[in-house]
Write a protein that binds this DNA or RNA. Structure first.
Lengths: 344, 344
DNA sequence: TTGTAGGCGTTATCAT
DNA sequence: ATGATAACGCCTACAA
């Protein structure tokens, strides 16, 4: 059915050389005279030759493939960034990105990942949170000797590439800023308990309260799961109090959007009646109205860096920094303002 | 570096059969006694054997790979749906999805696609708009005899799988609804001129105006490009008129979000001062406040169907319906209401 | 600088 | 029902 593709033999024949020489040219190996190289290049061009990835993988040591295992998102606010970054790095380096979406929780996750690795023979794996914290998954990869890069692990892992971000500090700064604006009752919506990020964002908030001598009010802390609906629910709970918070800090933008929705639904306005804050600076944050104050995390760059580090490891380089710490940045937009004096 | 993987030979040896028999079991071929099958299965399990995708591709006729070529999005509102649908279908059918993001316009697009197809040897290709309308790309695929499925081509293509949607009609119905609400000045933001969808959505709008005896006011029609910013700009233009529209129809949700942003930025409220409408029913539409009236297009299902049809074609089945037409549905939410009587 | 031989792990073909 | 053997297209190792 498929049109027969030109092979290395066809090229060799047309150029009047051996296949090994063609291989040398294709892979930019040394020891080919300019004249021969030219002939081969010409033959390649006229035959429209492209080496077969499969043959390459089967024959060689590397597979030129990086696997991305991630939790199947309803929205691509965060994963979309990871995807873009990883795709870009792969393309630049001549690698292929293989996707393996997962539905969590998955009791057989270790097995699923094993199968994925065995089938595709990927050279390395990129694991965004919360997979970066799943010990059994990491163990599988160790057993298979497949190098892996972790995005936002709770704690950097010794034998892995770790890509992290100063989130605790950013959260601290953000909270301080809100306190400076005059807020004293700060609602907080925690992220998914399985994500390392959640804890850090929360602890920065706690630290800022403590540093300012303000008691942590547990009833103002609600559990969310990083999705719109959970943010909305948590906000609804926070709005029920007689004396309610004057600001809500949501642990990511999706939940902040949910909170914004609920606040508006109840006829309140942002930021005059309620200030709102998110995390990640996904496109959503700047597209909502009012645009949301958030903590920017360079997701695309982080994924890009993760994949490049992975590829360097695969290529045998010794990395000096196995863990890279990115900067976060508090982005002030119009969803935050000083609170109205009014009590309720 | 990598731990050596178990091969078909190891399994055959352990089970005491030939590799061909193992192959039969793995591929669910007939002519294997239950007893033998059991032995083989047991061996596979104990060795944790997974067939190598590369060897399979190299040896067999099929590559078990579907390519998805798409325009690199800043946001994954639409592409995210396509991705999810395609991924699901691939997983169910034991195929792999290979991504090839593109930055348009790309003068070498035909060549890029050729290389992609030649390297990966994908068995089929999924092309969302606007790639579904690029004749040179289609020609490349014909030349390589690679079957392809088109999402939202302007006109169904004879030798392709076409997945389309009743958008013209939906747009017509939507516009009628707005007219019934009492709107008489209807602003329209067109989609990217390269997308087939754009024209259909616009023509449904025109038809409804015509059917209602309302003259099309060209100054109320603005060009957009399916992204947030272009929607915002177009809305800004529409808001400048002394006598401005009472509703803005944006050709997708991202642009509607941009329009909403601009309207709010100018201190107007939705829907009391201005009604707003989008297309696609991406998660964004229901997460904005107010939630947006939109035309739902079953993106995930469409992509899923496209890939399944592709796989059936690859497997040699003769499809009866090479073009599948999905239904669209007008989803009324709170961004639309009757216009205020006031003129300006 | 260039070429030859062998093997990578499957599926396909043809026997038995 | 089962098996032997030849591709598949490339890379690695080792010659020349």
């Amino acid at each position: 059915m498929q049109k027969p593709k030109a092979t290395i033999f066809n090229v060799a024949a047309l150029a009047g050389v051996s296949i090994k020489t063609v291989s040398r040219v294709v892979n930019n190996e040394p020891n080919v005279s300019d004249k021969t190289r030219d002939k081969v290049l010409k033959a390649i061009g006229s035959l429209n030759y492209q080496p077969s990835a499969a043959a390459r993988i089967l024959s060689g040591k590397k597979s030129y493939g990086i696997g991305l295992v991630y939790e199947n998102p309803h929205e691509f606010s965060y994963v979309g960034g990871v995807l873009n970054g990883a795709l870009k790095a792969c393309e630049d380096e001549g690698f292929t990105l293989l996707l393996r979406p997962l539905t969590l929780p998955d009791p057989n996750i270790a097995e699923t990942v094993t199968q994925f690795v065995l089938q595709t023979r990927v050279d390395g794996l990129l694991l965004p949170a919360p997979l970066s914290d799943m010990k059994d998954v990491l163990d599988v990869l160790r057993e298979q000797s497949v190098p892996f890069a972790l995005m936002a692990p709770t704690t950097p892992v010794e034998d892995a590439i770790n890509i992290i971000c100063e989130e605790e500090e950013a959260s601290f700064q953000l909270t301080l800023h809100l306190l400076e604006l005059g807020h004293r009752r700060l609602g907080f919506i925690k992220g998914h308990p399985d994500h390392g990020d959640s804890e850090k964002r929360f602890s920065g908030y706690c630290r800022a309260l403590e540093a300012s001598g303000i008691a942590l009010d547990q009833s103002f802390v609600r559990q969310g799961y990083f999705d719109f609906e959970s943010g909305r629910r948590a906000a609804a709970e926070l709005l029920q109090f007689e004396i309610r918070p004057t600001v809500i800090i949501a642990s990511n933008d999706d939940m902040a959007a949910g909170a914004l929705f609920e606040v508006r639904e109840q006829g309140l306005s942002v930021p005059s009646d309620m200030s709102l804050v998110g995390f990640d600076d996904t496109p959503l944050a700047s597209h909502l109205w009012p645009p949301m104050t958030t903590v920017r995390q360079p997701i695309v760059e982080m994924a890009d860096a993760a994949v490049r580090a992975l590829i360097r490891t695969i290529s045998g380089e010794e990395l000096t920094n196995r863990t890279t710490d990115f900067n976060c940045e508090v982005i002030l937009r119009q969803s935050t303002a000083p609170p109205l004096d009014s009590g309720i």
